[in-house]
Design a protein around this nucleic acid. Structure first.
Lengths: 344, 344
DNA sequence: GTTAGCACTCAATAAAAGTGAGTGCTAACA
DNA sequence: TGTTAGCACTCACTTTTATTGAGTGCTAAC
């Protein structure tokens, strides 16, 4: 059986209609609503074929048809038209990015919020943590007798602070000297590179402050080691309450719970270096809990090996075209901004 | 009509039962379930009285009774028994606090999460921002040509950073000098105190760096002025999906939306200096959207004039006893920790 | 190959009947 | 005089039954 032009037109009508209404659609409705120039009986025959070919499904005997995962896949790969962002949407996204331009981590959170707002789906952002990023500047700041703060500026200009707790915290002056020493010696290192050997090498060149250097650096290394590999933020999770797919509170709750599982979200966003926008439909994500959801995701660049991901998650019956457009629209901006930041 | 002992026992039974089951309760059920030594007919008479007195309500003619706001109020003020935290709960809370002891703001977020976990209600935390807190230490850290970070340690040892964007960012060395200058002169100031006059006074004593000082301080003042008065965090909002009161997705969604409105949350937490735990029942909060919810809240101390609030919000039919116990239990710990921190 | 016609299916909706937890009132009892 | 058994009544909720309508597949004619 061959997927001729007419079958494709019918399939497209089914998918578009289902995305819009969330109701199974039948042959007569298609004949009336979409001007295909053929009768409902003919459409019926074609739909029967489409079902045999696996592109659509009948939820029960006397119902209309809905798209199958395979149907969505065809739609996303071949049928869907990307649209440009409206001027208004583009302006909104530009503003969000521009007003957070100095803090990439914060910018990503705000971006997630913006995407959730524009698409009405839930948005997930992963942000690589400092382990792999290179040190641009480190400053130790005194807090009290038992602790000080390490302020870290990475090469991608993320600013983070970590509180470090030590029994014998060096005094302000010593901390200042240590800041300088560490800065002079470890600039452009990544935290991964700071192993025991690097620590002792640095301590050797520290002269009178050797002990303090050792202690501080060990504390620093401990703090960094203890940190998770990636941070995950979500935004707009409450949007799922708007979809008839989740009109059952039990299902909605399960979904909320799933979207709080960090491990699951990490799996969901996956780990690859693709620069393209990826669409994962239904069971393709291999997560039983989310088999009725689709994910549209993309990686953004944080310099070299490091990248984070942004994903939009919604019901399978989501507006792929819109989500892809928004995501690709924003990605262009972000990558440009990040490049400008780390280049400039 | 007098609220005698028997009426109180019956009211207590009604409230306890309703808190547990969320179903209206009738005279026969009370007679069977609670061993009050009187017949259902007698209970019926008493219930009729309780309804006349406004303590209970009949949702419709042939239903049982449920507590009114006035009934809950009586319960909370006179009937409810506070319980001690179990050893396990106490240990859990202590651990949460202890492991975040160095960052009060972070600690409060984690505390909110912990309370939400223990109570299964949504938790709201407000955190006073830096405007009123006193400066313990300030450090300027270079980021790039057009920006630097201001790291701020307050007298309550909250560490925060703000990115400051300036066309002519001073170089590293100058920033270091400025840090020292500002530290020496503005320690124990609050940001509110840094007005134009203070800025120029400081600039006068800056010698060669006068222009840079002016520029940086103006930028700092701008950043601080732009900041909101309080920050609000919520945790466990998804818990509301567990209550039959919100089994309708529309209601749940409205609630989610309400709990994202910062202004509403600020109003909800109110502003007072009470050191007691406060219970706000139903319409008492004067927020139409939340008239079916109750709030249990308390203030925690962040040194002197500054305080934040923690609130637990749930359906009116919430387990007041548990929520009050958990909140008072944790408050003791927190205030002790904060006192130790700023004292030591 | 296309389509009108028809019998059939079945979820969803509506209407009808039945159930049961609840009430208020009355009259008898201690 | 307070307590209680008894009874008729109410009304949300559940179950049952009937109705509707959007959908299908198949067949025969164009």
């Amino acid at each position: 059986m061959v997927l001729n032009d007419r079958k494709i037109k019918i399939l497209e009508a089914i998918i578009n209609d289902y995305i819009e209404t969330a109701e199974p659609i039948g042959s007569r409705t298609i004949a009336k609503k979409y001007d295909l120039g053929i009768s409902s009986a003919t459409i019926r025959n074609e739909m029967s074929d489409l079902e045999d070919m696996g592109f659509i499904i009948q939820p029960h005997a006397s119902a209309g048809r809905i798209p199958s995962d395979k149907g969505y896949r065809l739609y996303v790969d071949r049928l869907m038209r990307r649209r440009e962002l409206t001027e208004e949407e583009a302006r909104f996204l530009r503003r969000v990015i521009a007003s957070n331009i100095n803090q990439i981590d914060y910018m990503m959170q705000e971006t997630a919020r913006a995407i959730a707002l524009l698409t009405n789906y839930a948005t997930i952002v992963s942000e690589p943590t400092v382990k792999k990023t290179r040190i641009r500047h480190i400053q130790f700041v005194p807090v009290d007798e038992r602790s000080f703060a390490m302020v870290l500026v990475t090469d991608s200009k993320v600013v983070k602070n970590h509180i470090i707790y030590m029994d014998n915290t060096p005094d302000e002056e010593t901390l200042q000297k240590l800041s300088k020493l560490v800065n002079d010696n470890l600039r452009d290192y990544s935290f991964e590179d700071i192993d025991a050997e690097a620590v002792s090498r640095l301590a050797a060149s520290a002269g009178e402050n050797k002990d303090a250097v050792m202690a501080v650096l060990h504390a620093v290394v401990n703090v960094i080691q203890a940190e998770d590999d990636v941070q995950i933020y979500t935004s707009g999770v409450k949007n799922i309450l708007s979809f008839p797919e989740f009109s059952d509170v039990g299902k909605a709750k399960a979904m909320f719970q799933a979207l709080e599982e960090k491990d699951m979200l990490i799996t969901l966003l996956g780990k690859n270096h693709s620069e393209k926008i990826q669409v994962v439909i239904g069971a393709e994500n291999n997560l039983a809990l989310l088999e009725d959801c689709s994910v549209i995701k993309a990686n953004y660049n944080v310099g070299g090996q490091n990248f984070g991901s942004i994903g939009v998650i919604g019901p399978k019956r989501m507006d792929y075209s819109q989500a892809v457009s928004v995501l690709s629209g924003i990605l262009k901006h972000i990558n440009a901004v990040i490049k400008a930041l780390s280049g400039g």
